[in-house]
Amino acid sequence: MSDATHGSNGQSGASQTVCLVLVEADGDAVCEATRQALTVARELAGTVEAVVLAADEELARRLAPALAAEGVARVHAVTDPLLAEYGPEAFGAALAQLIRSVEPTGVVAPGTARGNEIMAHAAAVTELSLATGCVAIAVDGDAWSVTRQRWGGVLWEDATLAASVKLATLAPHAVAVQPTPGLEHATVSTFACDLDPTLARTQVAQRTPLGAGVTLSTAPVVVSGGRGVGSAEGFAVLEELAERLGGAVGCSRVATNNGWRPHADQVGQTGTRIAPNLYIACGISGATQHWVGCKDAQRILAINTDPEASLVQRADYAVIGDVQTVLRAVVDELDRARQPADAGAGG
C-alpha cells in the first residue's frame, strides 16, 4: 500500500518548485553519486523528491529512510513489471511518464553509465533538453546555467539549459556531498506506469558476475603503468606489487596501443575512470586524457625518471627513478617488512 496516491498533490503545486533526483541504489543504500546529485538538487528547487524505478515499491520503501536523511520529502516509487530487470528503453520510458505527471522544474541524475543512459531515453521520449556530465548547476531565471565536462573533463563548457523541465546528469566526483539537516520521514508515493511490453526487447537477458578478485573500477589500490614500463613483461613487477596490496593493475593508452595490456586495463578518458584510495602511476607522463581517469584518487604516487613530468607535478608523492628498479626494491622491502620483526616475536 502506498502512503499517498499520485497525481495533483498540494506539495508539488506551482508555489513550490520540485526537483526530482533519479536514485541509483547500491543494495539497500543510496549510492554516492546519487548523494552528490541530491546535494546539487537541494540548491535548485524548494523541494527535492526522489525517483526509484523498480517492479514494485519495495525498494523505494527500503531506501526512504536514507533518502529522508538527505532531505527528501517524497520518494516516487515508479513501478511496472518490466522494471524488474534493467532495460534502458523501459527505464527511460518510465521516468518520462513520471516527468509528464509531476512536471518538475527539473530532474538531476547521477552521471553514471546507467544514469546517463536512462536520462537520454527519457529526454528522447519527452523531447526535452538534457545536459550530461555537469560539474555545476545553478538556477538562472526559468533556465539552469550549467558547467559541463568536455574532453573527458580536460575542458569545461558553460551553457544555458532552457526547457519546461530541465534534465541534467552530474559527473561523478564533481561535487562533494554536503551535510543537510535531513527529515524524519519521506513519504512513498507509488506511480504505477503503463509501459509498452515491446520495450522488453532491450532488457538485460543475462548477467555474468565478475570472477573472484579485484577489478580496476573498484580496487582500493591501482598500480598503473605506461610507456616507461617498457614492455609487456615489464608489467610483471606491477602485478607483484598489486597482488601484495590487494589491488588491480591499470595502464595508459600507450600500454594498450602497444599491446602490452588489454584495453580493459586502460585508465582515462577512453578507458575507465577510477577513484581508488591510492593510485601508483609508473612511467606515465600524465597527459590530460589520462589524468581525468585517475584524478579522483585520494592519493597519487608517481614513479618517473622525469621530475618535470606532469603526473609527478600533480601527484601527492613521487619517486624519481626507473620503474623496474624502484618497484623491485619496493616489493622486496615490503616482503621484508611483512616478515616478523625478529624470530622470537613471530608466530
Binding site: 604516487l301 608517481a302 621530475p307 609527478v312 607535478q313 600533480r314 601527484a315 601527492d316 608523492y317 613521487a318 619517486v319 624519481i320 627513478g321 626507473d322 628498479t325 624502484v326 623491485r328 626494491a329 619496493v330 622486496d332 622491502e333
Partner: peptide, 11 residues
C-alpha cells in the same frame, strides 16, 4: 608533491 626519494633508495 612530496618527493620520497630517488631510485631504489626510496623503497
Amino acid at each position: 608533491t612530496e618527493i620520497l626519494g630517488r631510485g631504489a633508495d626510496a623503497a
